[in-house]
Design a binder for these strands. Structure first.
Length: 680
DNA sequence: AAGGAGGGTTTTTTT
DNA sequence: AACCCTCCTT
């Protein structure tokens, strides 16, 4: 047992319970990751081959981290690596081999959010619903909810309550047909098609089941219905399932995650053992106190209390500022001061926020005050336009029936194929029952196009075919091919045409370069490179070069991220900004159900429990939105954290006195560390 | 077909 | 404020 000396008794129990269903209820900062890696090591020591253990994580980042930590723990000697994967990439691996059984092309494309929107827009247009009546984004969310609930396009219209639902159901059918004929799947389809595959082809299922003996799932509170079904299918022969999670950190309800999976785990899997981890080693007592006070306002949770092990930490601070600019300026100034005078490292700091519009003022302050920072995860990678353009080219080379991508590139950069020509070609193709691409390739003689347009179309078809061949014939040289393509379409000239400022041009070229480099990178690392595989990987790993992102996350800079993106991380010093009604809780949740408010509360809880030593909350009294400044009210969560609950006299536990709080006003010029408030 | 002006709209969170 | 769409001119 000495090898588990670093674990406390419950952790040890969790790490050594190897067979049968195991539920580990692990609160924030209780050493969950450590337990998972130790358990993996124990499994291997008990004689299980590493590659017969499948661990599922929620994000790619978590997967990479788990791989690293396990191989550290196991040492170099083991050759076979444990299988660590996200639900989505696991499904892609299965589908890459088997999807043809379901009538999809082997080189299926994965549509990301942007592609989905284009597809949704097209579906809505087809049934003559304007963007105003129903936004493509809303349609996608609704479709996703249907998919996660297992409702197929055929049956979506059965249980509709209103006209808008009915229209959405019709659009859902169009959307799905469109994806199918484009040979494309969306993120939800990846999961759905996999369980379909398993249901329809038991031999495939048993082959996959036979590939491993143990399944571990991290962040189990975030599983949705389809993922749950997949888990059931996978563990059915042996029930060696270990799930780890915390119902208080369930923050993905909006995309179908269902807390009841973790709450009712023992009912779903017979003979479940439960281990609770409640010893928190991350946060100080002060931080944990307000976290506990906040989250106990939520109904229907596993009532647990985190026990602090870091006593007498500094108080949690709360500031209110005039507006978001002052908020940003003061926070950055404090960070700069702490780095310069008190030996703090930029990497010690994280600034957390609710929405992706919030980092803007912060970013410009960080730049102005020369503090190194990085926005983690946000789609805000400078412009994605170039990346998206070039990715669309790659997608077309891999799968020319991908209509969304084809439409994006057909006249980008402008090559004389305008909307009229595209429209004619597309309509004709639809009439002939062909895809956009085949219709273009075998352009019917009776389709009258102006000579100029016809020449351009032919030249374009030619270009695509030439590069398609190149990609197929020499997959090893993918990088060179793409570089040559970018050259051939004169994309640099396009950038010059579109942007007149030098910085802009440099930045845009850099992102083109980044993409090309990531292709080179991929060919170097892949055993058997193929464009399809590159595309499928990058759809799941967020397009941006991952290794680069890793460096940035590890690098010595202040991290800026959304609360969602912060899950699973920890920092010595955390600033949680924008504690305002409408932002946290978000307006859309306030207008919604109390369950949505509860999720916002958990979101705040997640943010607070990221902090190891210092936590600073703040809000602005007025905030700019859509170019207009509007007053903002303090978040209800502040009250819940800092004021006494209404009926407090039912207990003699007067030591748990609520922390008295007054707002500390900070005028734009007056903040210095010495006088900044330390709220008891 | 291309490019520019003007007007309307937008932002929750992400694999 | 930034983006997208539409309409207008060339």
């Amino acid at each position: 047992m000495e090898r588990l000396a670093h674990l406390n008794p419950p952790q040890r129990l969790a790490a050594t319970t190897l067979a049968g269903p195991l539920l580990v209820l692990a609160g924030a900062g209780t050493g969950k990751t450590r337990v998972i890696t130790y358990r993996m090591a124990e499994l291997i020591r008990s004689g299980i081959a590493p590659n017969r253990i499948l661990s599922v994580t929620f994000t790619n980042k978590a997967a990479r981290e788990m791989k690293e930590r396990t191989s550290e723990l196991l040492g170099k000697k083991t050759r076979a690596k444990p299988m660590v994967s996200t639900f989505h990439s696991f499904c892609v691996k299965v589908l890459r081999r088997e999807i043809e059984a379901l009538g999809y092309p082997k080189k299926f494309a994965i549509y990301d959010r942007g592609d989905q929107e284009s597809a949704a827009r097209r579906a809505l247009r087809e049934i003559k619903v304007s963007d105003k009546q129903m936004k493509p984004g809303d349609l996608i969310n609704r479709i996703s909810r249907w998919k996660m609930g297992g409702v197929s396009p055929t049956f979506a219209s059965d249980n509709v309550e209103n006209d808008s639902d009915f229209l959405a159901a019709v659009a859902y059918r169009k959307y799905q047909n469109f994806l199918r004929s484009s040979g494309a799947v969306d993120f939800d389809d990846l999961l759905l098609l996999t369980i379909d595959l398993f249901d329809q082809f038991p031999d495939v299922l048993s082959r996959v089941q036979g590939a491993f003996d143990h399944l571990q799932i991290d962040e189990y509170q975030d599983t949705n219905g389809v993922q749950f079904r997949l888990v059931q299918q996978l563990v059915e022969p042996h029930n060696n399932l270990c799930v780890v999670g915390d119902d208080d950190q369930s923050i993905y309800g909006w995309r179908g995650a269902d807390v009841s999976h973790i709450l009712n785990f023992h009912q779903h899997f017979e003979g479940t053992k439960v281990v609770r981890l409640e010893d928190n080693y991350r946060c100080t007592d002060r931080i944990l106190e307000i976290a506990n006070r906040l989250v106990r306002n939520n109904p229907g949770r596993h009532d647990k209390k985190l026990i602090p092990h870091k006593m007498s930490g500094p108080g949690v601070r709360y500031f209110k500022y005039q507006d978001e600019t002052v908020e940003a300026e003061s926070i950055v100034r404090e960070i700069a001061y702490l780095i310069k005078e008190l030996d703090a490292q930029p990497r010690d700091f994280a600034v957390l926020f609710r929405t992706n519009e919030q980092p803007r003022p912060l970013e410009s302050e960080f730049r102005r005050q020369l503090v190194p920072y990085i926005v983690v995860g946000g789609q805000s990678f400078f412009d994605r336009r170039e990346t998206r353009d070039l990715m669309a080219y790659l997608k077309v080379l891999a799968n020319p029936s991908d209509e969304v991508s084809m439409r994006r590139i057909i006249n980008t950069p402008a090559r004389g194929i305008g909307t009229t020509t595209s429209q004619k070609l597309l309509e004709r193709a639809v009439r002939d029952g062909q895809t956009f691409w085949t219709g273009m390739k075998n352009r019917p003689a009776d389709l009258k196009l102006p000579t100029r347009a016809a020449t351009s179309v032919d030249a374009f078809v030619n270009l695509i075919q030439r590069y398609r061949n190149a990609v197929q014939q020499d997959p090893e040289a993918l990088g060179e091919t793409i570089e040559s393509l970018v050259d051939a379409i004169r994309y640099d000239d396009e950038i010059d045409r579109q942007y007149s400022e030098d910085d802009q041009r440099v930045a845009r070229r850099a992102s083109v370069r980044e993409l090309i480099d990531s292709v080179y990178d991929y060919t170097r690392r892949a055993d058997e490179p193929s464009l399809t595989e590159y595309l499928q990987e990058s759809a799941l790993t967020d397009q941006v070069d991952e290794s680069d992102k890793d460096d940035q996350l590890a690098g010595n800079s202040v991290k800026l991220m959304t609360l969602h993106a912060s899950k699973g991380l920890e920092f010595p010093r955390v600033y949680l900004v924008g504690m305002e009604e409408g932002l946290l809780p978000h307006r859309r949740s306030i207008e919604g159900t109390s369950a949505q408010i509860a999720e916002e509360r958990r979101l705040a809880y997640v943010g607070i429990t990221r902090a190891q030593d210092y936590l600073t909350l703040s809000r602005a009294m007025a905030r700019r939105k859509f170019g207009k400044t509007r007053p903002a009210q303090p978040s209800r969560f502040l009250r819940e954290m800092f004021e006494a609950p209404p009926n407090i006299n039912d207990t003699d536990d007067s030591s748990a006195t609520p922390q008295p709080v007054e707002e500390i006003s900070v005028a734009s010029e007056s903040l210095s560390i010495a006088e900044s408030g330390d709220l008891q």
